[in-house]
Simulated assay, not measured.
Amino acid sequence: MTASSSSSAPCITGWHHSQFGKLDGVDPEVLIGQVAKAAIEHAGLQPEDISSIHIGTFNAGFLYQDFPSSLVINTLPQLRFKPATRIENACATGSAAIHSGLHAIEAGHSKHALVIGFEKMTELATPQVGEILLKACYAKEEAGVPGGFAGVFGQIAQAYFDRYGDQSDALAAIAAKNHKNGFVNPYAHMRKDFGYDFCRNVSEKNPFVAGPLKRTDCSLVSDGAAALILSAADVARSMPRAVQFRSAVHTSDYLPLSRRDPTQFEAASLAWKQALAAAGMTLNDLSLVETHDCFTIAELLEYEAMGLAEPGQGARVILEGISTKQGRLPVNPSGGLKSKGHPVGATGVSMHVMAAMQVSHDAGDMQIPNARYAGVFNMGGAAVANYVSILERIS
């Protein structure tokens, strides 16, 4: 954990983000090299300045090529002989790679850490993608869930509906909000403002997928990569930009849903409490949040986990406009996973890049006016691995 009281917390000093989407004919190795080279240049560094490489990818069968930790050296031979490690933690893989870099800096082993997140998912048919993603469930009990992870979250949504009533209006409003936000994100996979009515109603183009979840409630199968540079605080302050981690927290919960209340993301709630406490802040201090909306029901539950609403009351956050770009706490001004896309290993890095852009006032049409503090929540599985970061630009 990085504490707010310490002026020595590592900083994000450079970044780069690829287009997300169906990247036909794009070699993952080339994609990794491109984002790494551009992030290093954005930080004003040379490849020789990098102390360690931390690469996040889920893979699990998306690509035959595994063991990707040193692939970036093919593009940037100056990185040869630098320590390079592959990190994986399901859909939180990107944040896990960031934590690996943070720990290397905090331990004094690295001055500048290169973090890369990537995934190439679309080379397989959708049913195969679903089977691979379902490997991140508790296989002994959940491997046979129809619909893959959509089926898992469909069960979560149904349990929530059974307890608190039909939330279809709220889920449609979340989907519509994120697609509207993603429309102005140049990196987004789906840049289309569908509107509330399309997201709310079942149609040939928006059928039910799993339980009460429709197609517009589900994030996209995407390819993409993102990279960032983490630097020690003593050198970061003299660099072109420095976005500091006021806090960075990781909590984990039981993998089996049978051992938890599926309608509450308890470990996510704990991560938020710990991160805000370590940052010396409350939720009211944040300018925006990038949260893990792999499914719209996840964003609804995350409103409650972060403390925007009591259990069962998450719908009011979106229906009252609190989480819109004009609201009290904009959530997913990038369009989130729902619109931006969800290349698994890239997601956590992407979310931190989007948040860093916001607090640096470098987010273009996505920009939240006067953004100062950004929260990031990235999770693996159904709130099993939970990462919360609080970011602030200091120079």
Rank of each mutant, 00 (worst) to 15 (best):
residue 2 T to K: 11
residue 6 S to W: 02
residue 8 S to Y: 01
residue 9 A to F: 02
residue 10 P to T: 11
residue 18 S to D: 04
residue 19 Q to W: 07
residue 22 K to E: 15
residue 24 D to S: 13
residue 25 G to V: 07
residue 25 G to A: 07
residue 26 V to T: 14
residue 27 D to K: 06
residue 29 E to W: 00
residue 30 V to I: 13
residue 31 L to V: 04
residue 31 L to E: 05
residue 36 A to C: 11
residue 46 Q to G: 09
residue 47 P to E: 00
residue 56 G to C: 07
residue 65 Q to W: 02
residue 68 P to S: 02
residue 68 P to R: 04
residue 70 S to V: 09
residue 74 N to L: 10
residue 78 Q to P: 00
residue 79 L to D: 11
residue 83 P to V: 03
residue 86 R to E: 08
residue 87 I to F: 15
residue 90 A to I: 03
residue 90 A to T: 12
residue 91 C to T: 11
residue 92 A to W: 13
residue 93 T to W: 06
residue 96 A to P: 03
residue 98 I to G: 08
residue 98 I to V: 14
residue 101 G to A: 07
residue 105 I to M: 05
residue 106 E to M: 13
residue 106 E to H: 04
residue 108 G to V: 05
residue 113 A to L: 00
residue 121 M to S: 04
residue 127 P to V: 01
residue 132 I to P: 03
residue 132 I to A: 03
residue 136 A to F: 00
residue 136 A to W: 02
residue 140 K to H: 11
residue 147 G to K: 05
residue 149 F to H: 09
residue 150 A to H: 12
residue 153 F to A: 03
residue 155 Q to G: 12
residue 157 A to N: 05
residue 158 Q to S: 10
residue 158 Q to V: 02
residue 160 Y to S: 01
residue 161 F to T: 06
residue 161 F to R: 13
residue 167 Q to W: 00
residue 167 Q to L: 00
residue 173 A to N: 08
residue 175 A to L: 05
residue 176 A to E: 11
residue 177 K to C: 01
residue 177 K to E: 05
residue 180 K to T: 09
residue 180 K to E: 13
residue 183 F to K: 12
residue 183 F to E: 09
residue 184 V to H: 13
residue 186 P to M: 01
residue 187 Y to H: 14
residue 188 A to E: 12
residue 188 A to S: 15
residue 189 H to T: 02
residue 190 M to R: 11
residue 200 R to F: 15
residue 205 K to R: 15
residue 206 N to R: 04
residue 206 N to F: 05
residue 207 P to I: 00
residue 209 V to S: 02
residue 225 A to F: 05
residue 229 I to C: 10
residue 231 S to T: 12
residue 231 S to K: 03
residue 236 A to R: 07
residue 237 R to L: 15
residue 242 A to P: 09
residue 249 V to D: 11
residue 253 D to T: 05
residue 253 D to Q: 08
residue 254 Y to I: 00
residue 264 Q to I: 04
residue 265 F to G: 02
residue 268 A to H: 04
residue 269 S to D: 08
residue 275 A to S: 14
residue 275 A to E: 03
residue 276 L to M: 15
residue 277 A to V: 06
residue 280 G to A: 00
residue 281 M to F: 08
residue 282 T to S: 15
residue 287 S to I: 01
residue 287 S to W: 05
residue 289 V to Y: 01
residue 290 E to I: 08
residue 292 H to K: 08
residue 294 C to F: 02
residue 296 T to R: 13
residue 297 I to D: 03
residue 299 E to K: 03
residue 306 M to C: 14
residue 308 L to Y: 02
residue 308 L to P: 02
residue 309 A to F: 09
residue 310 E to T: 09
residue 312 G to L: 07
residue 315 A to E: 13
residue 316 R to Y: 06
residue 319 L to E: 08
residue 319 L to T: 08
residue 323 S to E: 10
residue 325 K to A: 13
residue 328 R to A: 15
residue 330 P to L: 14
residue 332 N to R: 11
residue 334 S to W: 12
residue 334 S to C: 10
residue 338 K to Q: 12
residue 339 S to Y: 03
residue 339 S to H: 13
residue 341 G to Y: 08
residue 346 A to V: 05
residue 349 V to G: 14
residue 358 Q to A: 06
residue 358 Q to W: 05
residue 359 V to L: 10
residue 360 S to R: 12
residue 360 S to D: 06
residue 363 A to M: 10
residue 363 A to W: 11
residue 368 I to E: 11
residue 373 Y to P: 07
residue 373 Y to H: 14
residue 373 Y to E: 06
residue 377 F to T: 06
residue 383 A to N: 09
residue 383 A to G: 09
residue 385 A to K: 00
residue 387 Y to S: 04
residue 390 I to K: 07
residue 393 R to Y: 00
residue 394 I to F: 00
